[in-house]
């Protein structure tokens, strides 16, 4: 597989087929609701919903590394808030001679739930949506095609550049350049390595710009899209549900 900077996991599930704009909306709604309705169970409920979507999309296994990574951040939240939260009054427990307070821990829990919630909602978006589709959807909604091109090509060109570094390293070591050793050696090796990377990508960028020009990149015609997605009825239903839930939570907030 050619490398692309993408976490997308190819599966054939309903979740994968949902319109990418709806997935963005889902992220926004699930970030917004816990802020509108700041109850612990709301965040927990949203987390459970996201987890079930991830299970349905058969990508839960890919989420675990993400959660593992965020555990460090969450732990630090628990420790800092548990020890130093402004409203700390009630002692929860001691570890050695250090005291944790209930108020802080409760606040840390709320915060952690929100972080996990955001993380999972984003995970649905990035794990089940092809970046190219997402960008194309945004271009259709009015994002500049040039900017869209820069985004989607960067995802493939950056890994290609990284592999060029390997051949540059080979070429310079072949001319007697030491690349391993103490800091001074490494600093001396920096320019011989970075110089060709920069010059090489400038040359490639110019060549690619010409190749794009002759493929009508700057055409004034109205662009068409090969992957013209049929606007499914389910898309609109999903959108309607998302907006209703958001409105409902705002109404509840006002009423309660």
């Amino acid at each position: 597989m050619a490398k692309t900077l993408s976490l997308y996991v190819e599966r054939n599930t309903f979740i994968h087929r949902v319109d990418s704009i709806n997935k963005i909306l889902y992220v926004l709604v699930s970030v917004a609701i816990p802020l509108i309705l700041p109850y612990k169970f709301v965040a927990v409920l949203l987390i459970l919903i996201s987890i079930s979507f991830l299970l349905l999309a058969k990508v839960m296994r890919r989420v675990i590394p993400l959660i593992e990574f965020s555990v460090i951040i969450l732990l630090s939240i628990v420790i800092i808030q548990g020890l130093f939260h402004a409203g700390n009054k009630t002692v929860a427990f001691h570890i050695a001679r250090i005291t944790f307070y209930k108020e802080g821990l409760s606040y840390a829990f709320t915060l952690s739930m929100r972080v996990i919630n955001i993380l999972l909602a984003f995970a649905i978006l990035v794990l089940t949506t092809k970046p190219s589709e997402l960008i194309e959807a945004l271009v259709k909604k009015g994002l500049s095609p040039r900017f869209g091109y820069v985004l989607s090509s960067a995802l493939q060109i950056i890994p290609q550049m990284m592999s060029a570094v390997g051949s540059i390293m080979d070429a310079q070591r072949s001319r007697g350049l030491e690349t391993e050793g103490n800091l001074a050696v490494r600093i001396r090796a920096f320019f011989p390595l970075i110089g060709p990377v920069v010059m090489g990508s400038l040359i490639e960028t110019r060549e690619r710009a010409m190749a794009l020009e002759v493929r009508a990149f700057n055409s004034r015609e109205k662009k068409t899209f090969l992957n013209e997605r049929q606007n499914l009825r389910s898309d609109n239903v999903i959108r309607l549900i998302l907006f209703s839930i958001l409105s409902l939570s705002i109404v509840l907030r006002v009423l309660l």
Binding site: A164, R173, G200
Partner: peptide, 23 residues
């Protein structure tokens, strides 16, 4: 021996000149 040391004995011209030129 390291590649840099071996460079005294054996020289190699790579395919793509843009992989080495930096001066």
């Amino acid at each position: 021996v390291t590649v840099a040391k071996l460079a005294k004995e054996i020289g190699m011209v790579f395919q793509n000149p843009n992989d080495q030129i930096f001066k």
